[in-house]
Amino acid sequence: MMPLHFLSLLVATLQPLAAAEPEGWTLVWADEFEADAIDPGKWTYDVDCWGGGNNERQCYTDRPENAFTADGHLVIEARNESWTGDPFPPRWGLTGDPVTQDFTSARLTTRGLASWRYGRFEIRAQLPGHQGSWPAIWMLPEDSAYGGWAASGEIDIMEAVNLGEPCDVCPTGLETRVLGTLHYGGSAPDNTHSGDATFLEDPTGFHVYAIEWTPEDFTWFVDGVPYARQTADEWFTEGSAASQTDGAPFDQPFHLLLNLAIGGNWPETSNLGGVSEDHFPRQMRIDFVRVYACPSNPETLAGCRHGGQDD
């Protein structure tokens, strides 16, 4: 029987969506950002000054100054401005003294609105450069069935830091890497991760970042070219749940997140170090977000994955 979460999403395809479907796939959810405003039926905001657990330096807001639509794009804009806000995400139910950060930005999520288990996810985006920039396209579990982060998993479709800055291991001598990563294992600090990177020939241009997720593996793509793969025997969870399977924790529905962080442990210890206060505002522009299912085999994705070629 087709899972209810895919059945409900397939119904949405009865309404035309402006996208060319890859062979074998069916578009089940999309945002082309053609409207005058961000669709509240598809996206909500994380609003806090927590720093993401990585000592990031931004406050996330729901202001139009930090996230808006323009020219058919979603624009997430990081600004060099002081802001004071909640020290924790309000959904946690925790309290504490307000926190002031030196930058503002936005983090959009489909949490509570749309989530998926398995499929193909494509996001066409243009990334910001400069020291301290940390754009990310990623996924978190809708329900943390196996415990706190990262026992229930995290899927990073794309991350990059400090694009355009000096890089000793990059072919051009400038930072052009984007990464795809899985986080899993136990709850922090007993978590671990694995992933791989590829180099962009044009880090300032638009690229399609994609991932195919099956019960057996993940495959990462840039502009249709695969560059990384991980299989189910490489990940695990130390969390406990009656429904735990060999694919845990990546056997549960996950939602999408789009954000532009400034600073944090990773970018500030890479390339030139720290955060440059130049080149603000910085923008991450997203042309579209598209989610595909494999209606012929929604659980295995047989016949759809890897461009229609199964292993």
Rank of each mutant, 00 (worst) to 15 (best):
C294N: 04
R285L: 06
C167A: 03
A106V: 11
G147I: 10
P166C: 10
D36F: 13
R91A: 12
V275C: 11
Y184H: 13
A241T: 04
Q15D: 12
R111V: 10
D196S: 14
T44W: 07
A293D: 14
Q58P: 03
H279P: 04
L74Q: 08
S240G: 09
A70P: 04
G263L: 05
S105Q: 01
N162R: 00
W266C: 05
A232E: 12
H183A: 10
A188D: 13
T13G: 08
R124K: 11
E234Q: 15
F250T: 04
D168P: 03
Y184T: 07
F6W: 15
E299I: 13
G303Y: 09
P22N: 00
V289N: 00
P249G: 03
D62I: 02
W138I: 12
W213Y: 08
V208C: 00
P40L: 12
D246K: 06
Y60N: 06
N259T: 14
G180E: 01
P203G: 07
P215Q: 02
F206S: 06
Q15T: 15
Q230L: 15
G274H: 05
Y292W: 12
D310R: 02
A106K: 01
A70T: 03
A145F: 12
H73I: 01
D36M: 09
E32Y: 12
A261S: 14
T172P: 06
T269Y: 03
W134M: 00
D46H: 09
S187H: 04
W83D: 03
F236K: 00
W213T: 08
A12S: 15
P3F: 10
F221H: 02
W92V: 06
I38T: 09
I38A: 01
G303Q: 05
L94M: 14
D62Q: 02
T237N: 08
G185F: 07
M158G: 05
N54A: 11
Y184I: 07
Q126P: 11
G147L: 06
I76E: 04
L260M: 01
L14H: 14
W25M: 03
R282E: 08
L27W: 05
A242L: 09
R229F: 04
L108W: 03
G164Q: 05
G180N: 02
W29C: 11
A136W: 10
K42L: 12
L301Q: 14
W92L: 15
R91V: 12
W92F: 15
G153M: 09
P64C: 07
T26H: 08
T192Y: 09
L14W: 14
T61W: 10
Q244A: 15
